[in-house]
């Protein structure tokens, strides 16, 4: 009995390991193909870095202008705000580097029937879509964001302890995941609607506005909307609050709950969407 159980476990482990190895190999191929593609359109390589880099510099200038006239926004001084901008920039840069351009193509692939090519391959379609359009040019933006974060952390005079950094990193990873699932969720709606252009525009507008307004400025119904229903308000706010030591247990649990709920919703919408997909003309 025990032997059978050990055998079963080892077989399961082997399957899991071989699956991981298979996906590792696929990832390598996708990265290689992407690099070949990028070498043809060289300006596109650094394009996102310049576009988003300019956006974040502008954002820094704006808050610098505001802080020239006031000492604090809510409980945050200029250092905390720089930390916030750096964190948002990092979340955006990580998404741009890894998955944004792949996820961006989902609506078109559903509309044109190109999704057939993804469903007929022996690999998870979402895995391939996530990693097939990595953008190494945005790595510069990651570096740039890290500099802003370090500068912000220094300027905010917060106590940089191992616990604070670990907590910040935990929230950063969690919010990067939330950022990713929100991207997938919004594009998965294409399985059911003819056009999601407006929803994508709304996402872009909300991201851009939440980038200008940290969650600490929200209250009442706005907090409910931007913390729970359209959770763009928490994405950079929670990591910064954790670094500053302002994050309460209640808010932390709420944040984790929101991520879990949206992960389940995204998985359901995606899986049902794949079943709903009728090839070209969906």
């Amino acid at each position: 009995m025990k032997k059978d159980e050990i055998k079963r476990k080892s077989a399961a482990n082997n399957t899991w390991l071989s699956k991981a190895r298979k996906y590792q190999r696929i990832l390598k191929v996708l990265v290689r193909l992407r690099f070949q593609n990028l070498m043809v359109f060289r300006l596109d390589f650094l394009g996102p870095f310049f576009v988003d880099g300019s956006l974040f510099i502008i954002q820094l200038l704006i808050f610098k202008a505001i802080y020239a006239n006031v000492d604090s926004i809510g409980s945050w001084g200029s250092g905390a705000m720089i930390l916030y901008i750096g964190t948002f920039s990092l979340l955006n840069a990580a998404s741009m580097t890894i998955c944004f351009f792949g996820i961006l193509g989902i609506p078109y692939k559903i509309r044109s029937g190109e999704m057939d090519l993804y469903l007929s391959k022996p690999v998870s379609p979402l895995f391939r879509l996530t990693f097939e359009c990595i953008n190494p040019g945005s790595l510069l933006l990651v570096v740039f964001s890290i500099f802003i974060i370090v500068y912000g952390a220094k300027a905010s005079n917060c106590r940089i302890t191992v616990h604070a950094v670990a907590s910040y990193l935990f929230w950063l990873v969690l919010m990067a995941f939330l950022y990713y699932i929100m991207e997938v969720l919004i594009r998965s709606v294409s399985f059911y609607l003819i056009s999601t252009t407006r929803i994508e525009q709304l996402e872009e507008a909300l991201l851009s506005l939440c980038f200008k307004l940290p969650g600490i400025a929200m209250y009442g119904i706005y907090k409910v909307i931007f913390y729970c229903i359209l959770p763009y308000g928490i994405m950079a706010t929670l990591p910064v609050q954790s670094m500053l030591g302002e994050l309460t247990w209640k808010t932390a649990l709420q944040g984790i709950f929101v991520v879990a709920v949206f992960a389940v919703i995204t998985a359901l919408v995606w899986k049902k969407g794949i079943r709903h997909y009728n090839s070209a003309g969906s």
């Binding site: 300006l43 596109d44 394009g47 310049f50 576009v51 300019s54 956006l55 502008i58 200038l61 704006i62 202008a65 505001i66 020239a68 006239n69 200008k212």
Partner: peptide, 28 residues
Amino acid sequence: QGIGIFLMIKNNLVALITGTIVPLVLFP
């Protein structure tokens, strides 16, 4: 030939210098 990236940067800059994000009087 390809001016797409330049146009995106232009849009970012225009939002700042036309004062639609914050009033320009707040700047130095």
